[in-house]
């Protein structure tokens, strides 16, 4: 059995979490202050994921803030950035509008700002 120490990134508290693993499976999670911390720790030791926030160009030459509507594998972030940087969004656009459907594993890229 081995243990992994993590700092939770779910909220500003930044809890120090210890995950005990046995045969690569999570045995226990301690140190978290909330269920989100437990879920983060369980995911972090198997496949770390992050919400990606960035920008895309718009057809009329402006910049639009976007994010993935769910966490995506950390290992794929740079690859996804390359794809996203080639995307041109149409305006007008509202917060929450899907810019790219199913960017990866069913996760969409959505607008986080509005442009008239």
């Amino acid at each position: 059995m081995n243990s992994v120490n993590l700092t939770c990134v779910e909220c500003p508290l930044g809890c120090s979490i210890t995950v005990c693993l046995k045969d690569g499976k999570v045995e226990s999670v301690s140190g978290n202050s909330c269920p989100r911390g437990k879920a983060y720790a369980e995911s972090e030791v198997v496949c770390p994921k992050r919400v990606l926030t960035t920008t895309v160009k718009t057809a009329d030459g402006r910049i639009l803030a976007v994010k993935t509507d769910n966490p995506v594998p950390k290992a794929d972030l740079m690859k996804l950035m390359q794809r996203i940087n080639g995307i041109i969004a149409n305006t007008p656009v509202k917060i929450g509008d899907i810019i790219v459907k199913n960017l990866i594993e069913g996760v969409n890229l959505v607008a986080t700002d509005y442009l008239e």
């Binding site: 779910e10 909220c11 500003p12 919400v51 926030t53 803030a65 917060i95 986080t112 700002d113």
Partner: peptide, 25 residues
């Protein structure tokens, strides 16, 4: 907030992780 496009805003107030422009809106 308009230039803070990263997320993590609003966890205390709205119990969700918003980007800066989303929080501002």
């Amino acid at each position: 907030l308009n230039q803070c496009i990263h997320n993590g805003f609003g966890l205390t107030r709205f119990k969700e992780s918003l980007s800066g422009p989303e929080y501002a809106y």
